[in-house]
Write a protein that binds this DNA or RNA. Structure first.
Lengths: 151, 151
DNA sequence: GACAAGTTATTGTAGAAGCAAGTATACTCG
DNA sequence: CGAGTATACTTGCTTCTACAATAACTTGTC
C-alpha cells in the first residue's frame, strides 16, 4: 500500500475510476489515430455514423445524436455540419415537429462506415479480442451496463 | 437483433467498445461538472494532482505526467502552466538531466486535492458504490487492467 | 572529444468542444 | 384563444488540446 489509510487517494474506488479513465483514453486515442490514418475519419465521425446505422431507419434527431455520443447540443450541431459537408450525413426536416431535425446517414456515409468498421474490427481484435475471452467481454459489458443505468 | 449478420455494426466487440466509450464519457462529464461546481477545479487538474500525490515524493517528470493522464506533451505543458499559475503545482529542475523538469504538488495543491477528493469520493459512492458490489468492482478493475496492459 | 542520433520540454497554429444567449416552434392552462 | 413555459437547434465566444516545428540537452560511437 502506497498511502496510509488516512489518505483517501489510495481508495479502491478512486483507483477504479482512474483506471477506467485511463483505459478509455488510451483505447480512444489509439483507435482515433488508426481510423484517421486508414480512413481519414475522426473517431467522433465514426461514433455518429455507427449510432445512425444502429438506429431504426438510419436516422436520429439532433438531440438523440448528442445524447448517444455524450456531446453538448452545440458541439453536435457543428459535428453534424462537418459530416454533412463531407456528404456522409444529411439533415431532414421532421414533419411532426418543425423544431426538430433528423440526421440521416447517406449511402456515401454507409460506404465510409463499412470501411471504418473494418479498421475498427481489426483494432478490436488486437486489443479486446486478444486480451479478453468471450466470457470476460460479456462480464465487462454487463458491469458497464450497470454503471450506465440512469440514476 | 437489429442488424443482419452481414452488417458488423452489431458485433459484440463493437458494442462493448461503444459502451466503454459512453460509460466513460458520462462519468467523466458528470464528475467534471460536480468538481467544477464544488471546487472550481477542472477534471484534468484533479487527474494531475492525484497522479502527483500517488507518485513517490509527490512529483513526476513532465513526460510521466503526460503519459499518466494520456495527454500529448504539448497539452501537458500548458496544463501544468495553468496549474502552476494557480499555485497547486511547481516546476523543479532535475539535477541529473537538465532537459527534464519535475512537476511537484505544492502544499496548496495538497489542500485543494483533499477537498476535491471529498467531492470525488461522494460522487463515486453514488455512482460506483451504489451500483456495483465490492466484488464487481474488483472484477471490473481486473478486466480493465487486462485491457490496459501494453501490447 | 566531437558528431550523429535520440530524448525532453516548449511554442505557434489550428481545430474541436462547451457554455450561454438567441431564435423558432410546440405545449399548457386559464 | 393567448400568455407563459418548455423544447430543439444554432451561433458567438472562450478554452482546451493536438500536431508539428524548435530549442536544449544527453547518449552512443568512432
Amino acid at each position: 500500500m502506497i498511502q496510509p489509510s488516512a489518505c483517501p487517494s489510495g481508495d479502491e474506488k478512486v483507483q477504479l475510476f482512474a483506471l477506467l479513465l485511463e483505459t478509455n483514453a488510451r483505447l480512444a486515442r489509439q483507435l482515433g489515430l488508426e481510423l484517421e490514418a486508414a480512413c481519414g475519419m475522426p473517431l467522433a465521425w465514426f461514433e455518429v455514423l455507427l449510432q445512425l446505422r444502429q438506429a431504426p431507419e438510419g436516422r436520429l434527431k439532433m438531440n438523440q445524436v448528442a445524447d448517444a455520443i455524450v456531446h453538448s447540443t452545440g458541439g453536435t450541431t457543428r459535428l453534424v455540419d462537418r459530416l454533412e459537408v463531407a456528404g456522409l450525413v444529411e439533415r431532414r426536416s421532421c414533419p411532426n415537429d418543425r423544431r426538430a431535425t433528423y440526421v440521416a446517414i447517406t449511402p456515401a456515409g454507409d460506404t465510409r462506415l463499412d470501411h471504418a468498421l473494418a479498421v475498427h474490427l481489426d483494432y478490436l481484435e488486437r486489443h479486446l479480442g486478444a486480451r479478453l475471452s468471450g466470457g470476460e467481454r460479456e462480464t465487462l459489458a454487463a458491469l458497464l451496463e450497470k454503471i450506465n443505468t440512469a440514476p
